[in-house]
Design a protein around this nucleic acid. Structure first.
Lengths: 257, 257
DNA sequence: GAGTCACATTCACACAGGTTAAGTTTGCGG
DNA sequence: CCGCAAACTTAACCTGTGTGAATGTGACTC
């Protein structure tokens, strides 16, 4: 059920929720697990949000499509992360969500989500914190696609995916899950499949990066980060504990309401 | 002081805050107004957030820069909008903020922001709603830069700027503020200044769009929207009232804490 | 173990958009 | 209302990435 939780959210919940809260959360996830085949749409743009969704294993992708079919992957949702807070915010979803590969998500309906939030006093703040980081990642993707060239874009995305799973390695490198095909990598970076292929080969030659068996091997993280001009600030890997206090402060007005 | 408030936020506050709340908010803004010259940095990436900033007149831009100087405008903050909620969320800002042209912002320090939130029970939810819409806009910018070609990108941005000021015209067109130079338009769309110039001329020819005197003239909105394949869903122009209820529900757990 | 499918790879060629470098126009500060 | 800087425009040339189509390769199925 648990799978490898991403650094950015799953582990944080585990650390910042009380053990009773954590158990309620985990139980709710387990009770509502559902599988999707690769490529299946989970939510389509324009629908009314019906559930709080949390990825349990596999990756989900947020995407948008133009009327003529051109498609952009906007974000990747890794195991342990909530897909979005649309259930609590918008009337109609403005983007679609689908399965990168075989995927298990928990789909917590409105009622159960409500009672879960009441059982876990810090959960709402933690969910908000997740959204804040997601927004920061979205901004980085914007500059990635807008300003970096092909090799930098792909390198940057690889660094991000690695860091979101294992943090930044102090030295050397490592490996991590990487579930995207080159075609999907193209949709995420705004390149073509063909050019992504050329680019991946370039990275193989320049710093021995390997993409094999749904895993990404990075012999020297610093070297790859150098190519991408990768700066991990935007992942806000530290400071989560304080963040929860801060978000709580934002809503302090409510407590006295 | 007030200036033309954008559809997306200023007017909403006006409608959804009680008149006492609205007066407290306006008073706080007026008390903390500060001017910046065109191009001045207001916040630099990596700084600790020190204030809740709200644009009073002029436009602000969020941007990021790569080490070699390439720069991407990530978002535009229009009059009436808060720049971000960094004060309540992150330890270090992950992007910079500067003045598109001469700009007046209110800079509400931590203490005053706290007391303001306590005076205005719905303010926190409204601020959150603003962030939700901002995130949706960021997603649209990602697909804009990633998938649309030059003329589509520029047309899309023009439609957005217009719609954020006046909503979608039922028929015909209209005019609105447009404070970006072609160079800034280039930084926002991931193109070059030279190519933006070519593109703007193309739009002039194809649908008589004009950019003059810091104003944008759109004779036929539908035509421009057609070029861009513009779909206003992501601006969430409707449904704000309900949204505030929803965000409140998200934090209901807290009320009982 | 032949057939199928998904994915990666390669090639030849085209073009949207980048680059560099002049001009020209506009508008603001004095 | 002058002078200067910022903004816009034009031109010639170049290149990174897209296009379309074919081939290779490994894994899974019946």
């Amino acid at each position: 059920m648990t799978g490898a939780y991403s650094v950015t959210f799953g582990r944080i919940l585990n650390r910042l929720l009380s053990s009773a809260e954590w158990m309620a959360w985990e139980a709710s996830l387990a009770r509502n697990a559902r599988d999707y085949a690769k490529g299946t749409d989970i939510v389509r743009e324009g629908e009314r949000p019906a559930a709080l969704r949390v990825v349990l294993s596999g990756w989900a992708q947020k995407y948008k499509q133009l009327p003529d079919g051109r498609r952009q992957i906007l974000a990747l949702v890794l195991p342990g992360q909530p897909c979005d807070l649309d259930l609590f915010t918008v009337g109609r979803t403005d983007h679609s969500l689908s399965a990168v590969r075989r995927l298990t998500v928990a789909e917590i309906g409105r009622q159960e989500a409500g009672s879960l939030l009441r059982q876990c006093p810090n959960l709402a703040q933690l969910l908000c914190w997740g959204e804040i980081v997601t927004a920061a990642i979205q901004r980085e993707w914007t500059i990635n696609i807008g300003q970096r060239n092909a090799i930098e874009r792909v390198a940057q995305l690889m660094c991000e995916i690695f860091a979101r799973q294992h943090g930044i390695p102090v030295s050397g490198g490592g490996e991590c899950d990487f579930l995207l095909t080159q075609g999907q990598l193209a949709e995420a970076t705004g390149l073509t499949q063909v050019h992504v292929n050329r680019t991946v080969q370039q990275l193989r030659r320049r710093c021995a990066v390997e993409l094999r068996n749904l895993r990404l091997f990075i012999p020297d993280f610093a070297e790859l980060a150098g190519i991408a001009a990768f700066n991990a600030n935007y992942l806000h890997l530290d400071g989560t504990d304080r963040a929860v206090e801060r978000v709580t402060a934002l809503f302090r007005g409510i407590e006295r309401d």
